[in-house]
Amino acid sequence: MAVPTGQGEPEPMRTIRFKISRFKPGRIDPSRFETFVLAVNENMTVLDCLEQIRLVQDPTLVYRHSCHHSACGTCACIINGTERLACLTRVWALATTTVTLAPLRGFARIADLAVDMTGFYREIEAEWEVLRTAEPLAGAADSGGALRLENCIECGACVSVCPAVQAHPPFMGPAALAALHNQMQKTTAEQRPALLARAAVPHGEPMCERALACSRVCPTGVYPARHIADLRRLRLG
């Protein structure tokens, strides 16, 4: 394709205020909001805007991102009060002139919008399978042995929104329980009881308050609350 020249019809832009929670341990501490103003076109996502702000206005802005299409799960943050992926959130669709950005809750904070994912993986074994059998394609009788990556992109949105995680920090949280339940379905019958026992500890599935917020914010349709309900049924026999 030709080099984009930026010529042609001027595209419509809206002026948006980004109120971003800033934090640098020992320097901007406690955290405070800082406002950046940016002209935003119809297609720009919150992540596109963060990239622009860092490039043009403040190179010290810290946030997580990698794939820009909801595969890596790194860019989840709280956008106007809701856990979302910055890469999938179009600014115009938020229908506000001020966009407020804060880091996920329930995690140690590295700086600005970046959180430390160590806690997220505390109850998720490194070796648990990330692949699953793919669904048959439209028009095919079976999947033909195809494998695909799990829906969960480990973004942490469900942990951040979970009231039980906020109230009882030892709670394993929705992502770990969903991962555990997925793993149960991929292991042998002999290994299943041990996994179920692991989910049934006091800080496991019994601590879930059935708020269902995890399923509501999950950007990739994992529905962690369903996995937790299944684990509960299995425990109660």
């Binding site: 030709a2 080099v3 984009p4 595969a71 695909r148 990556l149 829906n151």
Partner: peptide
Amino acid sequence: VPQRRLSILGTTAWLA
């Protein structure tokens, strides 16, 4: 390129 429940269309290229 399929990935999870997405299909990814690639790509264009220019020199910058």
